[in-house]
């Protein structure tokens, strides 16, 4: 549960010397007639580091930041920490959980949650009798 209580990078800045390893990513959530679309910022994390899980009606995004050992020189300035990110959402009714898909692109993750056919608006043709 603790991963869900962390809020962005500033939390770690509030307590110097007490690094927070996992923070909640910033997200957008959009919806249209076909799907719910979740977009999360996970800078530094590629497709290999992203984990999207659907469990007990909950969608969990996790992004593991690759460790950056090659940066051997001292930091002259540090405005951000290279952290893991995680956030969970309750999946609303009417989502076809079997068809949820995810895509990593330029340090963001897009998760598409398609609606089940019955929830989509449908136009009924009216015939003359």
């Amino acid at each position: 549960m603790s991963i869900l209580t962390r809020d962005r990078n500033e939390t770690s800045n509030d307590k110097p010397g007490y690094p927070v390893r996992t923070v909640a990513p910033l997200v957008d959530v959009f919806e249209n007639a076909e799907e719910v679309l979740v977009v999360a910022d996970v800078p530094g994390v590629g497709v290999d580091g992203v984990d999207v899980r659907v469990e007990n009606g909950t969608l969990t995004l996790q992004a593991k930041h690759p460790s950056r050992q090659e940066q051997s020189g001292p930091a002259l300035a540090r405005e951000y920490d290279e952290v893991d990110r995680a956030r969970s959402f309750r999946i609303p009714d009417g989502i076809d959980t079997g068809r949820i898909s995810a895509e990593a692109r330029n340090g963001t993750v897009l998760v598409r949650l398609p609606k089940v056919a019955a929830v989509k608006p449908r136009k009924i043709d009216v015939r003359a009798s």
Binding site: L26, D41, A77
Partner: peptide
């Protein structure tokens, strides 16, 4: 809006031969 106060956030490193600036710019191509 912590994100907007100074965007992008930048880390600066010094190696023997170079200065390295890293900026978090999610969503940029």
């Amino acid at each position: 809006s912590a994100a907007r106060a100074a965007w992008p956030a930048v880390n600066v490193f010094e190696t023997k031969e170079a200065f390295v600036y890293k900026a978090e710019v999610p969503g940029l191509a």
